[in-house]
Amino acid sequence: MSFNFTVSPSFPAERISDWYIFNTWLQRSLSIPIHLELHDGFDAQRAAIAAGQVDLIHANPFDASLLVREKGFRAIAQPDGAPDEMVVVTALGHPAQAIGDLQPGTRIACANDPCVNTIGRILLEPANLNADNTVEQQRGTYIQVAKDVLRGQVDVGFMPVGAYRGLSSIVRRELKVLVTSDIQVIHHVFLIGRDLHSRADDFVRILLSMHETEKGQDLLSALGATRWQPIQQEDVEFMIDIISTLTQ
């Protein structure tokens, strides 16, 4: 029997091959067959979760909420480094200099990432902007979001800090960051489903020691981290409580 592994589809496209290498490393380290399935978007990923086709996942905080509270997944580790933050950008020549300058009717470009979009919406609240007085246009990738902003087809774009930094310097020079979130307390987390609970200690052991080998360090670096950190179930429960305050 092969276990199904997936990654919340908010990571930069250039890391796809690194996740395949990570999956190979994981299989060899645990001596169990693991199939990596990277879904095209959040809808496809949610459908796979609903169909019971996910056994382990590197999940964004919003997916973690669903998986832990409703599907019995268990937290194993979280990557170190900066927490999950996002930016609201506009074109350099746009008249808005701050969120407070945005007006009703503001056009927003975003990807289909509920985590980023929820935080983005919260960052627009000080300007009294909400779903009723803005126009949202969903795009397939963050590069398309940036293009829409640069072409003036929208007023602002939502994107994770990682995706913004991944844009070319030429593109970034033409963009202006109106606000960067500084939430500090929500992170991606590595989770395993019920069928793997009996192997939880093995997962913890190999992930927490991954940085001790040169190959492990290289792989972690490719994935944007330097090591996995231990996480207690209560840490995840606390993060889920925080998420629940953002989604109502």
Binding site: A98, I99, I122, L123, P126, V179, T180, S181, D182, I183, Q184, V185, F238, I242
Partner: peptide, 11 residues
């Protein structure tokens, strides 16, 4: 003034 972009969290 409220610091832009931040969430204040306590338990």
């Amino acid at each position: 003034p409220y610091p832009q972009g931040r969430l204040i969290v306590s338990r």
